[in-house]
């Protein structure tokens, strides 16, 4: 590739049914770039969980994806309530999602652990009342 490519998506917070559209698009974009299937799967699952989180907790946000020689970086930024205890939020099964989200198949406290599981690097920056930015990288 030689140079880096950047993609930007807006994640609509109003509609749970449309959550995941940005991940579908990035999946197609990475496929067009000839990225290998395993990397695409890891990127799209991590981003999908992140997108769902932004819809559930933060009324949407922005997703930026940068592809360079070393891998794929995903930056998910929202202006939601922030995460009070990021360490606790990383525990499998810990969730602050409302009950109705569980009936939709999410909110089981697996989102952040899954994002960490599928990426080589993950950083959470969160300020209560201001928002959360999650940066993840999947190396080639």
């Amino acid at each position: 590739m030689g140079e880096s490519l950047a993609f930007h998506y807006e994640v609509d917070g109003g509609d749970f049914t449309s959550a995941g559209q940005a991940s579908v698009k990035i999946k197609k974009n990475l496929r067009q770039l000839g990225v290998d299937a395993e990397t695409i799967r890891r990127v799209s699952i991590a981003m999908y969980e992140g997108e769902i989180n932004m819809v559930i907790h933060a009324n949407g946000g922005n997703a930026d994806v940068i592809v360079d020689d070393t891998g794929v970086t995903i930056i998910l930024a929202d202006k939601g309530p922030g995460i009070a205890d990021t360490e606790k939020a990383m525990e499998e099964g810990y969730s602050t999602a409302p009950d109705n989200v569980r009936s939709l198949g999410f909110g089981a406290g697996m989102g952040l652990p899954n994002m960490k599981r599928y990426t080589d690097d993950m950083k959470i920056e969160s300020v209560l009342g201001e928002g959360t930015t999650i940066t993840m990288k999947v190396n080639f």
Binding site: T17, M110, N114
Partner: peptide, 26 residues
């Protein structure tokens, strides 16, 4: 529970579910 599905890597897989919403397909 879709997050449980997402936690396990499977190849050429089928998903059986009783949940009906577009996130199942995604």
């Amino acid at each position: 529970m879709m997050s449980d599905v997402l936690a396990f890597v499977k190849h050429r897989a089928a998903l059986l579910t009783g949940l009906v919403n577009p996130q199942v397909i995604r």
